[in-house]
Design a protein around this nucleic acid. Structure first.
Length: 877
RNA sequence: GCGAGAGUGGCGGAAUUGGCAGACGCACUGGAUUUAGGAUCCAGCGGGCAACCGUGGGGGUUCGAGUCCCCCCUCUCGCACCA
């Protein structure tokens, strides 16, 4: 039987699907990934194997991967993301958790609209077809989702509840309208997203983009700024870099607001500063060109210069104005204000680098201690006054070549001279407050979240505008405000909804008069800010969320996705969770207990001198398949269609099967690092699965003979490695996510099985080893594992077997291998009984001939023993 | 410029607490089997003839450093006039 199997294998085991198989009748034991993967996927679907049931007595575990945008096809980034998630989901399930592992679609957004404009397909049709296609791709990967909870954010059943949440936010004052600038293409007469602006010009028609002020909707995320910041210090399960990025984004700074009286007037200019220690050095004032007092303070003789400056800055788009080393420019208004501490007159300038959105839009300029102010003062020949002197070389305004922004002693600062500037910060803040000249203040870099989009394919904002009642929210009973389907999409002439009379015209819910609907839709980040909670009760049809289900499942225990969402998505989701908590809809204030940010999938780029970037399949033996020229290999970069360094998951799965695709994306790198795709590495993983397959098949009859593992001699050694591997794999998966080392240790165990010499004598040990290999592999490569498990004659599924535990007793060793060092260099290795006393270890070590050679003629000074591992003999002389 | 992360064989990577550097895989080399090998199995595989030398470079702490401390270099990512 055994030898016959061997023959079959040689003739039929040629492991390249697609190559002709000569001897079909002997194919029984071949690893046919396609066939067995289809078989098990059907079994899982038929038995509803991954259904999550609320509150079934087991501890809950909510595992979520960031849901995809339905672009049409999955890419390797998805394969990686969902393979990682599926390992954890399956592992936790085997460990006995009640696992929620859902999937859905982030289905609103511009690509659907672009497809409509370019190909005349309706965004809904395009989106739902893409979803169908991607769903079947994901199913072919064997991912353990509860598909019964699937939804798309463009389903009216989803966005109606988003509209309701919006109404509640409106009531609480968390949603409001204000004027704000958008990118406007005057030729297309439409609003452009930041990514549609290329070099300050419209991506479609190339005309210059100008900012345009529109009334827009905002969410008051700034009201939660303090808590969003504070809670970053209470998220131990998040990667530190992500938390730091969020903190920087929120950008809390502590300082003062100070009023500067305008000379010969009763007006005041309020500034925000974090450097109140430098007030005595403030010699002029800089206002943002948009500052409300800018024109008011302009004297008649300065009017023309000021107007032309304001006009020039206004024409610069935001991207350009807030980028690079933009030349610092300004204009004098003709007015002066008074430094409240020195009483000096300070000229008031407008400056292009002062932003209206930050602080008060006015900056007290201290050229000696702020580099921007320094450059500005030099350019316009403005006065300077040093108020902080560092130790050592005292500076003068004449000799300064740049501002001194470091610490030092206060000078020229009245009563504060002689103290350190750090102390002066406190003292001057208190002083200003006492005198009523200013107050301590905290400022955030974070701005309110602008959610208006002048687009069609998004959630309609449920309000109407009535001539007599003003802005009126759509009543709850009239939700959802459904996107109309009969809308013309041309890409020109503003928002498509704004041109759809059918949609726009309705009656005022308050007075019945004809009114216009809001034509803006939400930023698609709004949908992804609460979808994770919706999965707890995806079919709830009376309210956004079923509080009981949410209380059971939330928070997400483990969230997994790309690092590119470190700030925006994750911050908005945290904000929404706090809002929903305040609205009584969810029970937590933070949505994600643990976060794993996975790296990108990268691949070598290749170029043909004639045909440019080449797909991997356009290359034959290092030459371009079209023209035969040598292919130039470029750097390794993130997979992207534009560089053609992509691998199609479908082809990969067709050729090797889902298990191999999953295994490679888990084995090639730890999840948080970038993964370099490499075809030969994939082959290696495929080879390994074949090796596992044969290890089971070639030993089937022995396995069936084995009962419980034998405990002596080689059996004991094999068993020790089996249980070590169980411990290693468990520890590597659980919390550590080091799937690559977990898989490596299983490979080692398989190698040990191959070199195990006494299979016939110890069938029980062999059987245990093979069974454990299969069980430990189950979260990574579920199809082949289920198949082998059933072949080995075990009753029940792997799910019923559960995750294995290791036997401490099996791990113990009678003998320890001790590394012997002399003066820190390895000179020998000895084997001693596990319970050997230090004296015995030392004697044994010094008896080792090589160790003795290095100790000859020397005096032993010290011996350091690390029990069970190492002995270092320190000698001298 | 600021903030974060990373530099280990030909390559991807391992070393969880300061204790045998290079696990595992790829590539490569040799052998076995074979009509054949792009399959499979076995063996080898950091450098050096050696003593020894080796974790980006230079110092330091320690019995012992890839790991801790200081300085420097390179790369990647994020933010970028934030007062």
């Amino acid at each position: 039987m055994d030898s016959l199997k061997g023959i079959h294998r040689q003739q039929a085991g040629f492991p390249f699907p697609g190559f002709p198989q000569v001897m079909e009748k002997f194919m029984l034991d071949r690893y046919d990934a396609m066939e067995l993967e289809g078989k098990w996927q059907k079994i899982w679907a038929d038995t509803d194997a991954f259904r999550a049931v609320d509150g079934d007595g087991k501890p809950k575990y909510y595992l979520l991967e960031m849901f995809p945008y339905p672009s049409g096809r999955i890419h390797m980034g998805h394969v990686r993301n969902y393979s990682i998630g599926d390992v954890v989901a399956r592992f936790k399930r085997l460990q006995g958790y009640n696992v929620l592992h859902p999937m859905g679609w982030d289905a609103f957004g511009m690509p659907a609209e672009n497809a409509a404009i370019q190909h005349g397909i309706h965004p809904a049709k395009w989106t739902y077809e893409n979803i169908d296609n991607m769903r079947s791709q994901l199913k072919r990967m064997g991912l353990s989702y509860d598909w019964k909870r699937e939804f798309a954010t463009c389903d009216p059943d989803y966005y109606r509840w988003e509209q309701l949440i919006f109404l509640r936010m409106l009531e609480k004052g968390l949603a409001y309208k204000k004027k704000s600038a958008v990118n406007w293409c005057p030729d297309c007469r439409t609003v452009l997203a930041n990514e549609q602006v290329e070099d300050g010009c419209c991506w479609r028609c190339g005309s210059e983009v100008a900012p345009k002020e529109l009334e827009q909707w905002f969410f008051k995320i700034t009201e939660y700024a303090e808590e969003l910041l504070e809670d970053t210090f209470h998220l131990p399960g998040w990667p530190e870099p992500v938390l730091i990025m969020q903190r920087n984004w929120i950008g809390r700074s502590v300082g003062c607001e100070i009023d500067f009286p305008v000379a010969d007037s009763d007006r005041k200019i309020r500034v925000f500063t974090t450097r109140q220690d430098t007030v005595y050095g403030a010699t002029f004032m800089s206002l943002a060109p948009e500052h409300p007092m800018a024109r008011e303070l302009t004297t008649e003789d300065r009017r023309r210069a000021v107007e032309s400056f304001i006009g020039r800055v206004a024409r610069q788009d935001r991207l350009r104005r807030t980028s690079e080393d933009q030349e610092k420019e300004g204009v004098f208004t003709g007015s002066f204000c008074i430094n409240p501490l020195t009483g000096d007159r300070m000229p008031v300038y407008l400056a292009n680098f002062v932003l209206m959105e930050y602080g008060t839009g006015a900056v007290m300029a201290v050229p000696t201690h702020d580099q921007r102010d320094f450059e500005f003062a030099r350019k316009y020949d403005l006065p300077m006054r040093i108020v902080i002197q560092p130790d050592g070389a005292p500076r003068t305004t004449e000799s300064m070549e740049e501002a001194w922004t470091g610490p030092g002693m206060m000078v020229n600062s009245g009563g504060f001279d002689g103290v350190s500037n750090e102390e002066a910060k406190e003292q001057i803040a208190d002083f200003l407050q006492e005198k009523g000249l200013g107050s301590k203040a905290i400022n955030f870099r974070l701005r309110d979240w602008g959610v208006s989009r002048q687009r069609y394919w998004g959630t309609p904002i449920p309000v109407v505008y009535c001539d007599s009642c003003g802005m009126v929210p759509v009543p709850e009973k009239d939700l959802p405000v459904v996107l109309p389907t009969n809308v013309e999409l041309t890409g020109e002439g503003g928002s498509p909804l704004a041109r759809s009379d059918d949609f726009l015209q309705t009656k005022c819910p308050r007075c019945g008069a004809p009114v216009r609907r809001e034509s803006d839709t939400f930023d698609t980040f709004v949908e992804s800010s609460w979808y994770f909670a919706r999965y707890a009760s995806p079919h709830e049809d009376a309210r956004p969320l079923d509080p009981e289900a949410v209380a059971y499942w939330m928070p997400v225990d483990q969230y997994i996705g790309g690092i590119e969402h470190a700030v925006m998505h994750l911050l908005y989701a945290r904000f929404f969770t706090k809002v929903l908590n305040d609205l009584g809809m969810v029970n937590v204030r933070e949505p994600f207990a643990n976060l794993l940010t996975q790296g990108m999938v990268c691949m070598e780029t290749r170029q043909c001198p004639e045909h440019g970037w080449l797909f991997p399949e356009d290359i034959e033996n290092g030459r371009c398949s079209v023209c035969g020229r040598d292919v130039k290999v470029g750097r390794i970069e993130k997979m992207s269609k534009s560089k053609k360094n992509v691998v199609d998951p479908d082809h990969l799965i067709e050729r090797y099967g889902a298990d191999t695709a999953r295994l490679f994306s888990l084995f090639a790198a730890p999840p948080e690092k970038d993964l370099e795709w490499n075809e030969q590495g994939v082959e290696g993983c495929f080879r390994f699965l074949n090796r596992v397959w044969r290890a089971v098949y070639d030993n089937l009859d022995i396995v069936q003979r084995g009962k419980s593992p034998e405990l002596e001699g080689p059996a004991r050694d094999l068993r020790r490695q089996v249980h070590r591997t169980i411990r290693k794999v468990t520890g590597d998966i659980d919390g550590r996510f080091h799937f690559n080392t977990a898989i490596a240790s299983i490979m080692e165990l398989v190698n040990a099985i191959y070199s195990f010499q006494e299979k016939d004598r110890y069938p029980g040990a062999l059987r245990e080893a093979l069974e454990m290999v299969v069980l430990l592999l189950a979260p990574f490569v579920p199809h082949i594992s289920e198949e082998l498990w059933s072949i080995m004659g075990r009753s029940g599924t792997i799910a019923e077997a559960g995750w294995p535990t290791w036997d401490e007793a099996a791990l113990t060793e009678e003998e320890n291998l001790i590394v012997v060092q002399v003066n820190g260099k390895v000179r020998g290795k000895i084997s001693v009984p596990a319970d050997a006393a230090e004296d015995l270890v030392r004697e044994t070590a010094m008896a080792d001939p090589n160790v003795a050679r290095f100790m000859e003629g020397k005096t032993l000074r010290k011996a350091i023993l690390v029990p069970g591992r190492l002995l270092n003999l320190v000698v001298s002389g």
